[in-house]
Simulated assay, not measured.
Amino acid sequence: MPADVFAQAQNGLRTNDGQVIDPQLRHRRDSPMSDRSPRLSLAMIVRDEERCVARALDSARPLVDEMVVLDTGSVDATPRLAREHGARVESFEWPEDFSVARNATIERCTGDLVLILDADEWIEADDADTLRRWTAAATPGTAGLVTVASETESEGRQVTSHTESVRLLPRSCRYVGRVHEQPQGYAQTEPVPGVVLRHDGYLPEQSRRKQGRNERLLLRSLNDDPGNPYLLFQVGRERQIAGDFAGACAAYEQALPGITDSTPWRDELRARLLFSLEREGRHADALRSAQEILRSPDVSAEVLLAAGNLFVDLAGVHPQKHAAFLQMARRAWLTCLEVGDPTDGRDHTPGCGGHLAATNLAALSTGLGDEEGARFWTKRADELRR
């Protein structure tokens, strides 16, 4: 089989977050909808975000009653831009702890519920009353689960990944964790339909600006809690994003013994480990890990998708076994479609059990010169994406 088959297949693959009311919003307080709804505050922590802070605030301005921005030491125009775009801005010395900063911002809010937004995010909503309708119907103590669409680069192409994140909180809630902080204090979560947070902070140029910051905070947390598997997993993610695949493998492998079948991020850890092992050139270890993981019960589409990608890569590394590895990849992606995306609340990349697997099958068919198969799987991917 020609070598360019593998290149064509790989090129098509998809791989696997004082009350001041703006004059424009005063009418909401007199509207019937506002009379029934709790007041909404926006809470944001910023530092040197002049590139995007106006975009974030402008997207939120029609949806909330107040916008509170806590500036942790900007030396650019971020504070001025935030004020010009309707926010109340206060200064706060950076405490080397994201949860402390988040909580300080929430404490300065006056709304009944608080919408958490980062400066490199912006809101897409069906209409201006989307959040009002949700808050009017939500059970007290409920937090809102919002879809976050993050733009990233994979294999030299820009792609979008989707995750679910708790972002609409009762004001009594507080965050814990120095980095990758999590909110606590709500009774339950419910999805907020019609609201998507777009995010471009994972694109290479933006990631480089923050490189090392999160890992430094994570390592400080590990000093306080050695061996914590979640912290090790997050250290691995930071290193992987930075291209340090050896460091990522080391962290993931340390985290692996500490997870259980109920660990929400179990599947992402396994998928990222396979990817990082292959990128580090540890092909034998990657294959051994994939075979071990695939033998375990309840294998997810997330892991199957990553395993299929690994098998295609191994087909290029081991030409004498190319047919066998490509068949293994095909079986892995077909099984993705059988398994589907999880419905039990586990963290996952939406589409691994659907359009992403079908897209990879189309790419593989193209690489093998199977035009009919490529057309079939391209059509199927489009159907699953809807």
Score class of each variant (00 low, 15 high):
residue 191 P to C: 11
residue 161 S to G: 15
residue 136 A to P: 01
residue 174 R to L: 12
residue 139 T to S: 06
residue 187 A to N: 12
residue 155 E to L: 03
residue 193 P to K: 10
residue 221 S to Y: 07
residue 138 A to Y: 01
residue 133 R to S: 14
residue 160 T to M: 13
residue 194 G to A: 06
residue 155 E to C: 01
residue 215 E to V: 09
residue 185 G to V: 04
residue 224 D to V: 07
residue 192 V to S: 00
residue 155 E to Y: 03
residue 167 R to V: 06
residue 217 L to C: 07
residue 201 G to A: 14
residue 147 T to P: 03
residue 140 P to I: 00
residue 215 E to K: 05
residue 172 S to I: 11
residue 199 H to E: 04
residue 182 Q to T: 12
residue 205 E to D: 14
residue 161 S to A: 13
residue 171 R to N: 14
residue 169 L to T: 03
residue 166 V to S: 14
residue 172 S to K: 08
residue 136 A to H: 08
residue 169 L to A: 02
residue 178 R to C: 04
residue 167 R to N: 13
residue 171 R to F: 11
residue 142 T to L: 10
residue 167 R to H: 12
residue 139 T to M: 07
residue 222 L to S: 12
residue 140 P to F: 01
residue 197 L to R: 10
residue 217 L to P: 00
residue 150 S to K: 03
residue 149 A to K: 09
residue 167 R to Y: 05
residue 181 E to M: 10
residue 190 E to F: 00
residue 153 E to V: 14
residue 175 Y to P: 03
residue 173 C to K: 03
residue 203 L to W: 05
residue 152 T to R: 10
residue 201 G to R: 09
residue 163 T to N: 14
residue 139 T to Q: 12
residue 139 T to Y: 04
residue 208 R to A: 11
residue 155 E to A: 05
residue 160 T to Y: 05
residue 223 N to A: 15
residue 177 G to S: 10
residue 135 T to Q: 11
residue 152 T to P: 00
residue 170 P to K: 01
residue 223 N to V: 06
residue 204 P to A: 08
residue 179 V to S: 10
residue 194 G to C: 03
residue 195 V to C: 07
residue 173 C to W: 06
residue 187 A to C: 10
residue 165 S to E: 15
residue 135 T to K: 07
residue 201 G to T: 07
residue 199 H to F: 08
residue 204 P to Y: 00
residue 157 R to Q: 15
residue 201 G to P: 02
residue 173 C to L: 12
residue 146 V to K: 05
residue 151 E to H: 13
residue 137 A to I: 03
residue 220 R to F: 07
residue 225 D to K: 14
residue 208 R to N: 09
residue 177 G to T: 11
residue 171 R to Y: 09
residue 201 G to W: 05
residue 225 D to G: 06
residue 189 T to Y: 02
residue 169 L to K: 01
residue 172 S to T: 15
residue 219 L to H: 08
residue 209 R to I: 00
residue 207 S to P: 00
residue 207 S to M: 06
residue 165 S to G: 07
residue 213 R to M: 08
residue 209 R to M: 04
residue 176 V to A: 15
residue 177 G to M: 11
residue 146 V to L: 04
residue 197 L to A: 12
residue 175 Y to S: 11
residue 133 R to P: 02
residue 179 V to F: 04
residue 179 V to C: 09
residue 216 R to W: 08
residue 192 V to F: 01
residue 182 Q to G: 04
residue 189 T to M: 05
residue 155 E to H: 03
residue 195 V to D: 08
residue 164 E to L: 15
residue 179 V to T: 14
residue 172 S to G: 04
residue 202 Y to S: 07
residue 198 R to G: 09
residue 138 A to M: 09
